[in-house]
Amino acid sequence: MNTAASRNANTAASSDRGQGYTDHLERSQRVWDRWSDWYGLSEKDFEPIRERAIDRLDLQDGDHVLDVGCGPGVNFAYSRSQIGSEGQLVAVDYSPAMVENATDRVDQYGWENVEVRQADATTVDFDEQFDAVIATLSLGVMPDAHSTIENIYRLLAPGGRLAVVDVRPAPSGPLRLLNPIIWRVFRWYANWNPENDVTESLHHVFDECELAETVFGTTAYAMDCRKSNGSDRFGGCCSQSDIDR
């Protein structure tokens, strides 16, 4: 799908979901366009937990992987090192500036098996399913994380796995006293959406899901989720022949 057609499809889909959804999506685009050239400030801080999350996917040579809310492509090099030159990495982000930076990174390193699209992760569709999905620091800022997670589930092949890294106000302990400040920082910096309950939605949608680790006083966390073999509760995108390829 070309960029113009993708943008038109995203606009039509978001308008069908109501003005609040559209407003949040457009504000996210403005926020992440603004931060697109400064993302390196947080890239290194979260690199260890991101790489550990990808490690737990147990990716194999030739796997087909989706990176949701890819930003400027901070996961590309590490993910690609796991799937090899025969694998395929497809990445989506709604921010045109982030997509441009991610594409520049792909071009810089000559990664022929990495594709970047500008798309709304809640509605994006593909012709075949993925072996694994990565969503780092992206689900919490979605206008509708629950619907996005349902779409991720649909895009995963049976037996596929999802690795999530995200942030939240402190769920317990003394740090909870700072939650009003934490909430405002998340909202200002990333357009974090307080209406999302990412962990609850993951447990509700996926057949298996567990909290793998927390860092930064439990305000950042990693979740590992799995779609059972033979399970397709939200309707798969592909025929069995597609999945077997």
Rank of each mutant, 00 (worst) to 15 (best):
A135C: 15
I152Y: 07
V124Q: 01
I152S: 07
D120G: 06
E115V: 10
L137V: 11
D144C: 02
G140T: 14
I149M: 14
T123V: 09
E115R: 09
A157M: 03
W111T: 02
V116K: 02
A135R: 13
L139Q: 05
V116E: 03
Q129S: 11
I149A: 14
V141K: 00
T122V: 13
A145V: 13
L155Y: 04
V124A: 09
H146F: 08
E150H: 15
D144Y: 01
I149T: 10
R117G: 00
D131H: 11
A121R: 13
A145Y: 13
E112K: 13
S138Q: 05
F130N: 04
R117F: 12
I149L: 15
V114N: 08
A145Q: 09
A135G: 15
L139C: 10
F130Q: 04
N113Y: 05
S138W: 02
D120K: 08
V114W: 04
P143D: 14
S147H: 04
A121W: 09
Q129N: 02
I152A: 05
V116T: 06
R117M: 05
V133K: 09
N113R: 08
L155N: 13
T148A: 15
L137K: 12
S147Q: 08
T123K: 05
H146K: 15
N151A: 12
E128D: 12
M142H: 12
Y153L: 07
D144W: 00
F126M: 06
N151H: 13
T122Y: 03
V141E: 05
D144V: 04
D120W: 02
Q129D: 09
F130S: 04
A132Y: 09
L156C: 01
V114Q: 08
T136L: 03
L137N: 10
A132R: 07
L139P: 01
A119C: 02
Y153P: 00
E128C: 07
H146W: 08
Q129Y: 00
E115M: 06
R154V: 07
D131P: 09
N151W: 12
R154P: 00
I149G: 12
D144R: 01
P143E: 15
R154K: 13
W111M: 05
R117Y: 13
S138I: 01
D120C: 05
D144T: 05
A145F: 09
T122L: 05
E115S: 11
L155A: 01
R117V: 03
F126V: 02
E128P: 00
D131Y: 07
A121S: 15
L156F: 00
A135Q: 13
L137W: 09
Q118V: 07
I149D: 12
V114F: 06
E115H: 13
F126H: 03
F126R: 01
L137R: 10
N113K: 05
D131E: 11
V124Y: 04
A135N: 14
S147A: 14
A135K: 10
G140E: 12
Q129C: 04
F126N: 02
L156T: 00
E112W: 03
L139Y: 06
A135I: 12
V114G: 06
L139R: 07
S138H: 02
I134Q: 10
A119Q: 14
D144F: 02
V116P: 06
V114E: 05
H146T: 15
M142C: 09
Y153C: 10
T122D: 08
N113V: 06
R154Y: 07
N113A: 11
D131R: 12
D125I: 10
W111Q: 02
